[in-house]
Design a protein around this nucleic acid. Sequence first.
DNA 1: ACCTAACCGAGACGGTACGTCTTGTCTTGCC
DNA 2: GGCAAGACAAGACGTACCGTCTCGGTTAGGT
Lengths: 201, 201, 201, 201
Amino acid sequence: MSTAAESDSEAARPKPGRRRSEDSREAILQAATTLVVELGYAAVSIEKIAQRAGVGKQTIYRWWPSKGDVLLEALAEKASVYVPLPDEGSWSADLRRMLDDSFTLAGTSQLAELLRALMVEAQLDPAFGARFRADFLERRREALGVLVDRARSRGDLPPELTAEFAADVVFGVIWYRLLAIPRPFDRELADHIVTLLGARA
Amino acid sequence: MSTAAESDSEAARPKPGRRRSEDSREAILQAATTLVVELGYAAVSIEKIAQRAGVGKQTIYRWWPSKGDVLLEALAEKASVYVPLPDEGSWSADLRRMLDDSFTLAGTSQLAELLRALMVEAQLDPAFGARFRADFLERRREALGVLVDRARSRGDLPPELTAEFAADVVFGVIWYRLLAIPRPFDRELADHIVTLLGARA
Amino acid sequence: MSTAAESDSEAARPKPGRRRSEDSREAILQAATTLVVELGYAAVSIEKIAQRAGVGKQTIYRWWPSKGDVLLEALAEKASVYVPLPDEGSWSADLRRMLDDSFTLAGTSQLAELLRALMVEAQLDPAFGARFRADFLERRREALGVLVDRARSRGDLPPELTAEFAADVVFGVIWYRLLAIPRPFDRELADHIVTLLGARA
Amino acid sequence: MSTAAESDSEAARPKPGRRRSEDSREAILQAATTLVVELGYAAVSIEKIAQRAGVGKQTIYRWWPSKGDVLLEALAEKASVYVPLPDEGSWSADLRRMLDDSFTLAGTSQLAELLRALMVEAQLDPAFGARFRADFLERRREALGVLVDRARSRGDLPPELTAEFAADVVFGVIWYRLLAIPRPFDRELADHIVTLLGARA
DNA sequence: ACCTAACCGAGACGGTACGTCTTGTCTTGCC
DNA sequence: GGCAAGACAAGACGTACCGTCTCGGTTAGGT
């Protein structure tokens, strides 16, 4: 990930020229988020983001390969992507904890809008899709994988429940609700999932 | 669904003027499907559909409210939306049968592409989203609901499993695989789902 | 010049589709002229012309190959390119008449601005330059050529004065004054030219 | 022209700090000339000049007020602007000598390209236009004025030929040929001009 | 030997315009 | 009145330059 190649000597020589403006970066992420919520993703253009942020279009194209990547960074800014997963003592409790976290995220209408937009963009732009999967979707799956591993060593994981399938169910239900059946992420749903996946059969 | 208003008398009086061209209709649906598969949904425009179909743009706008609706009709043409659901004797068998049907649909790359496109359009255009939900998504849920009802009267439905939640899980996993984690719809996945939802606790 | 190829039968079959909007055409030419005078040619962009004319950019690109061609048509609209040249009885009088006409044209600040812009564009865009030469510059030379021919048959043309060289002098002085030494086109200048070129040696 | 203000004492006090780089200055002029010839003036940008010269854009903006001024200096570098005008014995001979010099200049395709570019820029940027007139065009007129004055005192100047009008004709024809009717500057043209302006009537 | 000032290259910045593409609407004349 | 063709106003696309600003790094007096 780090460009170690060019720092063969101790201190990496800073590149010449003016440095990237942090102000612009923040204004762009803020404008993108605001516009997605305000107008809906379909109406958000790079042109409008630039204008709203008071920034030249080139400044966006210079730093992000696509509109989706701007939103992905905006999301990362808002919600730490890699959540901590303290041991709650049992698989059921761990799972419930993860669901509560995820539901909070997906239940915040601002973030929900952002997540929908990202999934849409992933379909429209396959290259972005790959980045979205790697940087976001797979990380969430791995987080759940940690819980499953912990449960397995603890011994309270239902037999025949693989990490992969558990992830399919958990995230499948969440994304389906987000995209297809816009209903609130309530406690009842979490109860159902915990009951279904937590049963020691 | 049909506009019954215009047939107030017994026999609908045929309107004057040229009748809708079935040739054009078919050419448009065919062109739309082909283009989605060929170029990906992002590159499909009404302009290109019209050109490929050898049709004026107006003819599309006259009969369909949006690009998504063209695709929705194309999908309906390809795969009968309301599948028959013969009684297979048990909840597990019924479920497995439904999964097999759904997996066949979603596993056909041409249809998968179409489904993805429809879900994308549903996010981008809320009005179409409503139609897509009503005409497609909810019908699939109801189909599963029939199986659940049958199981409940038969008495082999796991307690605490509601029709709503079952649908969330089944379709959640399918759509998630379709949109987020492009992996094949294999027998193993179906096994897992049947095991999970079919258990009599 | 005329596209005779497509009218092999008696009546040219009209092309299908909506016809070109005369309103738009006029609004564009008007806007272009106004802007050149208002802002100077350097600040005139196709974007601004379109906006001022209340017209889409595409409508300009559809009908004119370049910004220069818009102005060339605007000029043709304002000043009939092919002036009538009545016989004034003598070479001197004919020449004076032509100079008066040309000076009136070049002395109108609105047209002067337009002419300058066209000559600039001819330098910047060689393809337009060729059109400008053929459609405007050469026509003016030919108009003068008619006078020279008439003088030659009349017998009052100074010996050794060729049509080509006469044109170089007449239009050279006019364009030089227009572009390089912005001074008014006064009667004194016309007198000088007539004296110089009219002398029977 | 020189900023005398800062040398109020006898010897201008040398400013501290790094001195202007002669290497950069030359590289810029060279790059500008080369690019004008290579790509045509329309395609020459300050960005490209800087890149070709291996120089920062700021270095150009620091020393020249506009792109035109860079070219004007490049021209001055190539062709001494103030030509010597030895007395050739007669008005006709003096005139012919000046025409030969000018034709050589304007006939060199590299310089012709440069001259065209300068005249274009003079139209686009009025402030540069004023400098171009003062530093180049008027100097040429004055050079011709010297010849006219000499002829007048010598007594072989055609009556009624003013210095101003002679300049209009000579430079008018040259610039017109350069900009409007791209034909070579041949001996025949010079003959015609000398005959026309040299005649003692 | 420092200090300060001006220059240098590189390159990011807010903007404007480019020429192309698509959207949804609006004519046209044929069927 | 449907249909293919295609012009229309609108506006986004991604790129190129504009002229300015900001970096770290020279290069020169002046002290």
